[in-house]
Nucleic acid binder design. Structure first.
Lengths: 137, 137
DNA sequence: ATCAAAATTGTATCATTGTCGCATTGTATT
DNA sequence: AATACAATGCGACAATGATACAATTTTGAT
């Protein structure tokens, strides 16, 4: 089962199940999830995220209804083989927007203004290489 | 749930919700409340104090806005973790770097170069306001 | 290989918790 | 007295949690 490095913001006021839907769509658009992949069970993911499994189930149901995943009682939930083609690019755009949105709000919580943030990004983007995901803290 | 030995003065002319904010801040300063502690539910505390639960909710909302507690619909309200000021700045820097790092790599996975990304950020930062995490899809 | 019991998975229903909009009350200002 | 405004109460609502249930797979005995 996939580890699902997912992070939630319990203070944002955005419902957990909405956050879950967004994150999973992002991961799909980003290729972190591929068609056929099995998602964690509602209970496993809920345990991992310290959330009630009904909340995860709700997110899965929404994703199922939008045709992104397939949830099957007694079996599990899987990424669909045909992530709606016309949707894919749409998802990519939205994912990118969401990514930026999250970046802005997270930074805002750290007390950084959008203006300063663009500078910071420029600096850090200058010496950036595809491989360096250090996270050494 | 904590017993919250709280006493209110209904004749003082000071609004209940203000008194509540003060008492809770005091208890926190006095160590009677610790980070992570769950406060009584708005209804439980309201019942205990013979007050309407909206009044308690109002006090909780103020405390939430000042970053003292975190209220989460459907879950409860909790005292926030508050790292000492010295470490805060250091943590802040590291968090900011990590944030930017994640932004860059995630975007790269979406096929966006650092250069394009800075443009995107600038655009989206232009019309950005603290509250708007729309999620309208 | 078969079949039934147990375990695992998602589903459904209801309780609990905080939020929101508006009504009511009380107090001060004119 | 009339009006305005802040504080509080009321009722409906959305998000999350708890519990029981149904569908499917897995396991184990025969």
């Amino acid at each position: 089962m996939l580890p699902m490095n997912l992070e939630l913001d319990f203070r944002s006021g955005i419902p957990i199940y909405i956050q879950l839907v967004e994150r999973i769509k992002e991961m799909l658009a980003a290729g972190k999830l591929k068609p056929g992949d099995q998602l964690p069970t509602v209970r496993a993911l809920a345990l991992d995220l310290r959330v009630n499994f009904n909340t995860v189930a709700r997110a899965y149901r929404l994703l199922d209804e939008s045709g992104v995943i397939s949830t099957q009682q007694g079996r599990g939930t899987y990424i669909l083989e045909m992530p709606p083609p016309e949707v894919t690019e749409n998802i990519r755009q939205k994912a990118l927007e969401a990514l930026t949105q999250r970046y802005l709000t997270d930074a805002a919580r750290l007390g950084v203004s959008p203006e300063d943030l663009t500078k910071i990004l420029q600096d850090q983007a200058a010496d950036w290489q595809p491989g360096i995901d250090d996270n050494s803290n």
